[in-house]
Simulated assay, not measured.
Amino acid sequence: MGGAERRRIVAGVSGSLSNLAALHVAADEARRTGAELLAVLAWEPPGGELAHRRSVFPSPMADLRHDAGERLLAALRTAFGDTGPGVPFQGVVARGAAGRALVETADRADDFLVIGAGCRGRVRRALFPSVARYCVAHAACPVLAVPPSPLESELASVHRRVSLRLPLDARELTDGRS
């Protein structure tokens, strides 16, 4: 490959609010260091690989991969608009569990992996393994887990109140200022 390879900032992409914040942190780090940004969206067939293989009418893998690519593009548009992140970047659609796909992509010692830590309650922690924890335990490069914004939990609270049709005082949204 002639010449030195550019340092890479690898960012996991899922489209969640905390993940979009992590994507911005990754783009800022790429800008600051002159690195290339790799935005990685991991995907698996619905229900997992085993369920897909045993399905009577499995969805074609090409369609599933295409859908994952569309989700990646949508997340990048949500994060950066039509102008993009403002740094050299590649979108990567990786088949497999998110933690493993991210660790396998960020496989160089000089890579820097940025992931959203996300909000995790007891039930969620019990049902779904932590991608951040997996990456920290298995990555061969430094990992930055970006904590969720406090606004994310406030937004979730408002969403719950609205969906349950509970009263909502708009002053609560502005820290009680009138």
Score class of each variant (00 low, 15 high):
R161K: 15
V93G: 08
L38I: 13
A139I: 08
P85D: 00
R108T: 09
A21K: 10
P129E: 15
V56E: 13
W43P: 02
A139R: 04
L173A: 03
A97M: 11
D175S: 15
G47F: 02
A21T: 09
R177P: 00
H138C: 08
E49N: 02
T78N: 04
H138L: 07
F112L: 12
R171F: 01
L50F: 10
E172Y: 02
A42W: 03
A97H: 11
A97Y: 05
L41R: 13
A140R: 15
R120G: 10
E49R: 06
A132I: 05
H52L: 02
P129T: 14
A170E: 14
G121C: 06
A145F: 08
V143C: 03
P88A: 08
A51V: 04
H52W: 14
R161L: 14
V56H: 07
A170N: 07
L76W: 04
E49V: 07
A140F: 09
V93R: 09
V103S: 06
A132L: 06
S14Q: 07
T83S: 13
S153A: 15
E29M: 03
V10P: 01
C141D: 04
R32Y: 10
V114S: 03
R54C: 13
L164T: 15
V158F: 13
S59E: 15
C119S: 15
R95Q: 10
L166P: 09
A170R: 13
